[in-house]
């Protein structure tokens, strides 16, 4: 084993396939997008170099609406961190105490993560359907007709109507991460605290959650970066409409590139998404401190 490790050629050979894939599938496209973002290009004709023109347009053009899409993504990130993650943490804490049917509930809460997002989108389209959707039907049967809405078709309800399924879908994902984290904490610690007279709430508050900090940090990073690149469910439910009410950077990017043939501008949005994800990942890491590393 030792001789293999010392053999540089062998090491390089073993790393080569993975690094080739990584380079061609991840690194190259990022750099190519970076290059395209400086072009005025429709994807077919000869491109023209326009410097940072696309980036200036991103933040100044009222028509393109990038700032609004970014704001929507940040609202989603906020909701993910302050609603989705506390829910996940609560469920993880509850389930890891060894409630009856623990495994069953873990599977149930994780189920939405396993189902294809397009299927979930179709399900929620039916839930929100103004004619026969369960939301309006329930409101009608409770005599609350005045609260019925075209949930995905009205500007003031579309955004929240789209965010609810996104947040719901990934509660199980974060719950599983946290649940696994809690399960890896030695039971002796919990037992010792109990012997000392700590209540379940105190154990969670002073022992489990602080020990779970690295996992929570990862969850926060996933939730925030996931929100910044949220795409699939929004695309299925509203495609960013009505009148851009649910537009996020990714849906705007797709509509710019594929509906309007603006490859350069779309690439600039892609680069902004990547840059923002990196920025937030680093900022969150710093905010949590690095003492546990």
């Amino acid at each position: 084993m030792k001789s293999v490790r010392q053999n540089k050629l062998a090491a390089i050979l073993f790393i080569l396939p993975a690094s080739l894939l990584f380079f061609t599938i991840i690194i190259m496209p990022i750099f190519m997008s970076g290059y395209y973002s400086f072009l005025g290009w429709d994807g077919i004709n000869q491109p023209t170099f326009i410097g940072i023109g696309n980036y200036i347009e991103l933040f100044t053009s009222q028509v393109a609406g990038f700032p609004k899409s970014l704001l929507n993504a940040l609202i989603l990130a906020f909701l993910s961190v302050f609603i989705q993650l506390p829910l996940s943490l609560g469920l993880a804490l509850l389930l890891s105490r060894g409630v009856k049917g623990e495994k069953f509930f873990v599977a149930v809460f994780f189920m939405p993560v396993l189902i294809s997002t397009v299927v979930i989108g179709q399900l929620w389209l039916k839930i929100y359907n103004p004619e026969y959707g369960i939301v309006n039907v329930a409101l009608n049967s409770l005599g609350l007709e005045k609260y019925t809405r075209t949930w995905l078709g009205e500007q003031d309800t579309a955004l929240i109507a789209v965010f609810i399924p996104i947040i719901w879908q990934y509660v199980g994902y974060h719950m599983l991460l946290m649940y696994a984290g809690i399960k890896s904490i030695p039971t002796e610690i919990r037992e010792a605290a109990k012997v000392e007279g700590a209540t379940e709430g105190q154990i969670d508050r002073y022992i489990i959650i602080p020990m779970l900090k690295p996992i929570i940090r990862v969850c926060v990073i996933f939730a925030v970066t996931g929100s910044l690149k949220a795409f699939d469910l929004i695309y299925v439910l509203t495609r960013g409409g009505p009148a851009k009410a649910t537009e996020v950077p990714s849906t705007l990017m797709v509509s710019m590139i594929f509906d309007r043939n603006r490859y350069g501008f779309g690439s600039a949005i892609a680069i902004m998404i990547i840059a923002l994800c990196f920025f937030f990942a680093l900022a969150i890491k710093r905010a949590f401190g690095t003492e546990e590393d």
């Binding site: 389209l125 929100y128 103004p130 004619e131 075209t150 949930w151 995905l152 078709g153 009205e154 579309a158 509203t238 409409g241 009505p242």
Partner: peptide, 8 residues
């Protein structure tokens, strides 16, 4: 139709 923009 009231929900026109929300329908496929």
């Amino acid at each position: 139709y009231k929900g026109a923009t929300g329908l496929s």
